[in-house]
Design a binder for these strands. Structure first.
Length: 138
DNA sequence: CGCCTTTGACCCGCGC
DNA sequence: GCGCGGGTCAAAGGCG
């Protein structure tokens, strides 16, 4: 159902007009926002949470708090409760919101792929009624 | 007020 | 059956 647009060597980015995320990557920029954003803030955030040998500590307020807050489709709710997702504090605004086709893409994830040393970014079209997703990797 | 980004955790599928 | 990899979620803070 979900239209996934894999960005690969042979798959063009949607309508790809002129400047695309790939272009940015090709330029050697890992973080897409590195071009014109305030990624520095993200670094501050990192420092704020890295205390345990580089491992992020989950705020105790998240451990076993507010029951029923998570989605029900989770099997082990209790387990999840303890492993509550930690919180992040940062703010990064990127002008790359509006890309090639003029659609608005929101980044919802980033993963480091084995094959590539570069991280793969996942974007979701936030346009009204647009359920398109796409991956961007170098 | 809404939207966006970051990033680890979580979950599922596939391969061995 | 287990492990690994890949994909998605969720939360907080700031700006327009």
């Amino acid at each position: 159902m979900t239209n996934i647009i894999p960005i690969s060597h042979h798959t063009p980015i949607s309508s790809s007009s002129s400047l695309s995320l790939i272009d940015v990557y090709k330029n050697g920029l890992i973080g897409i926002n590195t071009t014109n954003t305030k990624t520095e803030l993200g670094m501050e955030m990192d420092m704020d949470f890295q205390h345990d040998n580089g491992k992020r500590l989950a705020p105790n307020e998240y451990v076993g708090s507010s029951s029923g807050g998570i989605k029900e489709n989770k099997k082990d709710n209790k387990e999840k409760m303890k492993l509550r997702r930690h919180r992040y504090a940062f703010h990064t605004r990127s002008q790359v919101d509006i890309l090639d086709d003029g659609y608005r893409w929101r980044k919802y994830g980033q993963k480091a792929v084995k094959n590539n040393k570069f991280p793969r970014s996942y974007y979701r079209c936030t346009h009204g009624g647009c359920n398109v997703k796409k991956q961007v990797q170098r």
